[in-house]
């Protein structure tokens, strides 16, 4: 589904990604771990073209992401992204937030788009919040709306950029539950996160990135039980309680 080949990226003089390659299969839950500044978010954001790359290539469902404005536009309709800061549109209601892209990008009629939106709201557990404004919702609720908003475009891949890092601890579970349901339904997911519990439970593959280089990649259970690389072991020792 997603082929990332030898991707290089620099910000000014600082090289953030130094030739990373990975591939994600359809239906796979792919977790990316790493310390801050490792380039993991940058890598994720390159997949839907929010970041440009200086070298290598990224292909999503057969479309080369960084070829042209047209391919970029295509890829963004194939992928959905959930941000650490939620990024809901504060000037629109929850329902309008979710329905906006289907109406304006997919040109669906309003009634149909709102139907889809209501269904998704129910799915993330917030059926009665349709006419509320985002500022009235808790962090966990906002993030669930954000997930629904991304799902409204029927993406083939969902990208999660530290989706729970900005949440109060007691609100994290409700978001992870939605993500787990999504995984069970067979959605292809790439998740950058610090939630090891989630990774252990749901991930198919885990990759550890440090300083712009892929250090280790393995099936989830093997990754957590027998990490081979020294840096991986160091990292895991620091974050596992």
């Amino acid at each position: 589904m997603i082929e990332i080949q030898d991707v290089r990226k620099r910000f000014g003089r600082h090289e953030v990604l130094k030739g990373v390659s990975l591939s994600v299969a359809k239906g796979e839950v792919f977790v990316i771990l790493g310390p801050s500044g490792s380039g993991k978010s940058t890598l994720l954001r390159s997949i839907n073209g929010l970041e440009t790359i200086e070298g290598g290539s990224i292909v999503v469902d057969g479309v080369r992401v960084h070829d042209s404005r047209e391919t970029l536009h295509q890829v963004r309709q194939l992928t959905g992204m959930v941000f650490q800061q939620f990024n809901l549109f504060p000037h629109r209601t929850v329902l309008q937030n979710i329905a906006m892209a289907p109406i304006h990008v997919q040109k669906k009629p309003r009634a149909e788009a709102e139907e889809i939106a209501r269904t998704l709201l129910g799915k993330v557990g917030l059926p009665d919040k349709a006419n509320a404004y985002p500022s009235r919702l808790s962090g966990g609720q906002q993030q669930r709306v954000a997930i629904a908003r991304a799902l409204a475009m029927s993406p083939k891949v969902m990208l999660f950029d530290e989706p729970t890092s900005a949440l109060d601890p007691e609100l994290i579970k409700e978001v992870l539950d939605v993500m787990k349901d999504l995984a069970k339904e067979g959605m292809t997911m790439i998740v950058v996160t610090h939630e090891i519990g989630f990774a252990k439970e749901v991930a198919d593959t885990v990759v550890f990135i440090d300083d712009g280089i892929k250090i280790e990649e393995a099936a989830a259970d093997r990754f957590f039980t027998t990490p081979t690389h020294e840096r991986t072991q160091l990292f895991l020792s620091k974050i596992l309680l």
Binding site: N48, G49, L50, H73, R76, Q77, T79, G80, M81, F83, Q85, N87, L88, F89, M100, A101, H104, V105, Q106, A146, R149, A150, M153, L159
Partner: peptide
């Protein structure tokens, strides 16, 4: 906030749509 534009783009909106909507 930059994130607003990024969210709009990630949903497939064009520059113009992101700006005006």
């Amino acid at each position: 906030h930059r994130g607003q534009r990024e969210a709009a783009f990630s949903l497939g909106m064009t520059d113009g749509q992101a700006m005006f909507l």
